[in-house]
Amino acid sequence: MQAITEFYPQLSRSHKVVVTMHQKPDGDAMGAALGLYHFLIQLGQEVTVISPTNWADFLKWMPGCDKVIDFEAHREKAARIISTAEVIYCADFNALHRTKNLQHALRNSKAVKVLIDHHELPEAHEFSYGISNPYKSSTCEMVYDFIVEAGYTANINLDIAACLYTGVMTDTGSFRFPSTTASVHKMVAHFKELGLNHTVIHEHIYDNFLENRLRFIGNALLNKLDVLYEYNTAMMAIPKSDLIKFDIKTGDTEGLVNYLLSIEGIKLGALLIDRDEERRWSFRSKGNFDVNAFARLHFEGGGHKNAAGGRSSDTLENNVKHFKAVLKQYEEQLNN
């Protein structure tokens, strides 16, 4: 993988472009992809944004989201577009398997693949150009840097600002995580100078759910919360029956794991959800406990030091037993 700076001269040439992201895209993934879309169309590129799967309803307000193609819903159309693409931007993922069923089309494509991502251990051989910086707050911040450093600051408009603000806001926990550096606030200041209304974006993301989600969260906190004080750990295991009972859709469990870290003394929060084809883990931590390493070692996952995910094909019950068993290895670290 060559440095992304080597790709800058190609921005002035017309290309057929695809922008994609990881499955079940969150605010950062969708924000980065749409931010790139609004930037590249100004350069005369022919741009299509393709998501590997569907996405949360609270993201559908974003400028350009109505043009995004859901690969699982429109496989033939999306595959045809990918097969003729000359450049594919890969935002907020660094391994092709993170795109689920889309990975085969990406791997077989002859297009130049450009990586912009902030997760650890990228599969660099899969990409032609790119940048991978786990110290950045979000992929959206990296897209901002990409535009500015390539010499196109003047092209940043309110559509780009709204998309990128969404990603950096969500990935920094509304600017409270340690990744919120001075450069993040400088970027946001630039967006505000352009006239960005950040209050509306917060309302779209955090105040746009149905009643059933609030009842689901209440049920989870009341009946599924397991606090393991001997390990300074809290966990919740959500069965498929609860998802059906409360009619939970994509995005409705977003942020649920963060409630666990609000308990005094808790250093590790773990959320397990029983999905159709597999069980999905979300891990959050405080301080020096590295959930990225924890998820990679025990749950086929990864991510960031204080925020990571994992997966398992085993049952919900066996996952809970396994989690509690491996916690014993970390008792000293979690109590230090």
Rank of each mutant, 00 (worst) to 15 (best):
G310L: 07
L96D: 04
L268G: 04
F58M: 01
V227M: 05
Y152I: 02
L115K: 01
C65L: 10
N258K: 10
N101H: 12
I266S: 09
E123P: 13
T170R: 04
N208H: 08
N219M: 13
E46M: 11
F294H: 05
E123I: 13
F177S: 08
F191Y: 02
I273Q: 03
I131N: 02
A308G: 05
E230P: 09
E126S: 13
S128V: 05
Y330T: 07
F7K: 10
F127T: 04
I88G: 02
Q329A: 15
Q333A: 15
D70P: 11
K249A: 08
H15N: 06
V227L: 08
Y89H: 08
C140L: 07
T180D: 01
I82P: 02
I4P: 07
D274K: 08
E264G: 15
T48R: 09
D226L: 14
T315N: 10
I244N: 00
L225T: 09
E76S: 12
G44Q: 12
Q103F: 07
R13C: 13
L327H: 05
D276L: 15
L34W: 00
L334V: 11
M1K: 04
E300V: 14
G287C: 03
N212W: 06
V114D: 00
K267C: 14
S12K: 13
L272C: 09
M21V: 12
L106R: 04
L272W: 09
A32G: 12
N208G: 06
G195Y: 00
V184A: 01
L268R: 02
V112C: 07
L121Q: 12
V17C: 04
E76T: 13
G255D: 02
T233W: 06
T139K: 09
D28R: 11
S83D: 01
D70S: 12
P239D: 01
G167C: 06
T315M: 09
L43N: 11
F289N: 08
R311S: 10
V143H: 01
V257S: 08
H15R: 09
K324N: 08
E317C: 15
E126F: 12
V18Y: 02
S14L: 15
D92F: 09
K305N: 13
G173E: 05
N54H: 14
K305H: 08
Y229N: 15
E230N: 12
R213A: 06
A56G: 01
R296S: 09
F71E: 02
L327W: 06
T48D: 05
L243Y: 01
V18E: 00
A105C: 01
D145E: 06
D57Q: 05
D247V: 11
T250L: 03
C163T: 03
L115N: 02
L256R: 03
W281C: 10
L222Y: 15
L43Q: 09
A325D: 12
